[in-house]
Design a protein around this nucleic acid. Structure first.
Length: 600
RNA sequence: GCGCCGGUAGCUCAGUCGGACAGAGCAUCGGAUUUCUAAUCCGAAAGUCGCAGGUUCGAGUCCUGCCCGGCGCGCCA
């Protein structure tokens, strides 16, 4: 379905052509209701180019407009704004054309997929398998999953790549340590259980730092690992599998699906990267690829060190080892050449911006990606503690992501449980323990995700359980409540939302009905914005405004009766609006990776 | 020193490729309740958009300089 904004823009474009001009129609939602629903800001700019008065241009455009089917006659205001007010009949027609849940396209509210589907790779989460996932992995995982869902919904082929750290010197140490504490691991690798990866790492590290013999053994183990020694490999694989089980316990809870492709997957491809670069190496100090201080480097324009010297991207260290840049180059070759990606998105903290700038510049300079392929770093700010300082335990250590999820769920349980001194009549619904636990799990995780996604990407935000679990304001509990309440309306009204009589008209008379209808129909344009700008808070802001519009629609004073409305066609129309609201909320939340509840 | 991100109401944050008198939530104050889930809704008060210039018909938004906070800047990832 083409969004209403696009349709108005199309009409304005046609009108400007008719008066012999050309330009972006600049159609936006009106900033203030009193101006109407949409506005076009193109007359001012056009007037300048045509050497005419802005209001005259606006008048000419309005006279040339053919839009009576959608809007009242547009107003001209201020310096030359053209204001559009949608007709209720038009809104009703749009809503009626949204397919029912059981009809084709009903699961996507009739929104058609992108005309030009692409293959898109998202680099998401990517924890280091040597340790437990910590709070720093939350944002990439949640934001990346959301963007993946949105792009998938748009019809693109999406690869969700979890580029885990499973390779490198520290794995020699870990394998050597594991061999000592669990000699049996070679025979029964599948039975390996490490209850606390963090302390396992700490133990290994302290042995490494204090025991020279162990240090030597660790280094030999790295070599054995890289040379493909079978026993070493098996122990290493057992360790990585166990660590991945820890990760996926969290991903499962978060309802995030990822394809694990660790550094080790790229080991051969890194060799290939080096071979390609070596063939491009030039002597002297001018070329793109050259040896500098013993390291194989790519030098691009525009990157400087602290001292002002050229800053290279090092792809092979002077000791012969590979680093981040090497594997990132290898991933790009894999993604472009083998996965056929035309867009690669890196959902990684904003602190790594320079690394990605260099990486992309190198890929362009090397000619390793087609010119029309898009490489984009989606950087995000840090999650800080409520104090505004980096998130740490009292002892100064990193906070495990699992612990944070548990805490959020625990706090959610307190919020959703009825108070101990249960006052009769306060709530008409009773939940048993299992239901409360399930509701708390959904609400707690939703609250964390929603809070994260509702902030703009680039800025840091303060983690605040009280705010994110508040039942008021732009929070997950408010959204989930709004949804559950609507589902309850359906049950109480004795109708099946999935099977409402579709022949009924939608009647829009009351201001609250019209306002809700407009919000519902904005979903398509919000999706356009979201998929273009890749900013999840575009969706959270919209969903909040929709839930708010529904609360007004349903309000005793300012809204309308629904369940007991009469006559019957009015009642069915209003129930239909409820049904559409519930579906829009559910779809919008699902694109954020958030599950809904039928009751809470 | 250079680069990046941030500085908007008491607090937490939005602000769409420059557009109308700067928005929301929390907190504060006031109002609505024989409840269609009030876990809600309505209203009030609250801001020199870090500072100073500039571009523009129009700047929170673009440009320049400066101040404050955070992060990065050759072999970690």
């Amino acid at each position: 379905m083409n969004s209403i904004r696009n349709q108005i823009a199309q009409r304005v474009r046609e009108a400007t052509r008719r008066i012999g001009a050309e330009g972006d129609p600049l159609v936006r939602p009106a900033q203030d209701e009193k101006f109407g629903d949409y506005q076009s800001n193109c007359a001012m700019g056009l007037a300048k180019r045509l050497g005419k008065k802005p209001r005259d241009v606006a008048t000419a455009i309005v006279d040339a407009l053919e839009i009576e089917d959608m809007c009242e006659k547009p107003d001209i205001a201020g310096p030359g704004f053209i204001n559009f007010k949608l007709k209720p009949e038009y809104l009703a027609g749009c809503l009626e054309s949204i397919p029912a849940p059981s009809e084709a396209g009903g699961d996507r509210l009739g929104i058609s997929p992108a005309a030009n589907p692409q293959v898109i790779v998202l680099d998401i989460s990517s924890p280091n398998l040597a340790k437990e996932m910590h709070v720093g992995h939350l944002r990439s995982t949640v934001i990346g999953d959301c963007l993946a869902r949105v792009l998938e919904f748009e019809g693109h082929t999406v690869h969700r790549e979890n580029h885990v750290g499973d390779w490198g010197t520290q794995f020699g140490m870990l394998v050597a340590h594991l061999r000592r504490v669990d000699p049996d691991v070679v025979r029964h690798p599948e039975e390996l259980v490490i209850s606390d990866l963090e302390s396992f790492y700490v133990d290994a590290k302290s042995r490494f730092d204090t025991d020279d013999e162990f240090k030597t053994e660790s280094r030999e183990t790295v070599v054995a690992l890289q040379q493909g020694d079978e026993t070493t490999r098996r122990i290493w694989r057992a360790f990585c599998d166990e660590s991945l089980r820890h990760c996926h316990a969290i991903y499962d809870r978060l309802d995030v699906k990822l394809v694990d492709r660790g550094e080790s997957f790229y080991a051969d491809r890194m060799e290939d990267v080096i071979r390609r670069l070596e063939s491009m190496t030039t002597a002297g100090d001018k070329g793109l690829v050259r040896i500098s201080d013993g390291a194989l480097c790519v030098f691009m324009e525009g990157f400087k060190t602290r001292e002002g010297d050229p800053l290279p991207m090092i792809v092979r260290k002077s000791d012969g080892g590979y680093n981040y840049a090497t594997s990132d180059l290898a991933t790009i070759l894999h993604r472009v050449e083998e996965l056929g990606a035309s867009r690669i998105l890196y959902v990684v903290g904003i602190g790594q911006k320079q690394h990605f700038d260099m990486l992309f510049a190198a890929v362009r300079a090397l000619g390793w990606a087609k010119d029309d392929a898009s490489l984009l770093h989606i950087g995000f700010g840090n999650m800080l503690a409520a104090s505004g300082k980096p998130f740490k335990t009292r002892e100064g250590g990193t906070v495990k992501l699992k612990d944070l999820l548990d805490e959020a769920v625990q706090r959610a349980r307190e919020v959703v449980s009825p108070p101990d001194d249960d006052q009769p009549g306060e709530r008409d619904r009773q939940f048993d323990k299992a239901q409360v636990a399930q509701i708390a799990e959904t609400v707690g995780l939703a609250a964390m995700k929603y809070f994260d996604l509702s902030h703009s990407l680039s800025s840091d935000y303060k983690f605040d359980l009280g705010t994110m679990l508040s039942l008021e304001g732009n929070t997950a509990p408010y959204m989930l409540y709004a949804y559950a309440r609507i589902r309850s309306i359906g049950r109480k009204a004795g109708v099946e939302f999935d099977d409402l009589p579709r022949s009924e008209e939608i009647l829009l008379e009351h201001p609250a009905e019209i306002a809700l209808a407009k919000r519902l129909l904005q979903f398509a344009e919000v999706l356009d914005d979201l998929s273009r700008e890749l900013r999840p808070n575009v969706m959270t802001d919209y969903l909040y405004s929709l839930a708010k519009a529904f609360s007004r629609f349903y309000d005793k004073k300012l809204g309308v009766r629904v369940i007991d409305a009469s006559p019957e066609d009015v009642r069915l129309s209003r129930l239909h609006l409820c049904e559409l609201t519930a579906r829009t909320l559910k779809l919008g939340l699902s694109l954020l990776g958030i599950k809904t509840l039928e009751e809470m």
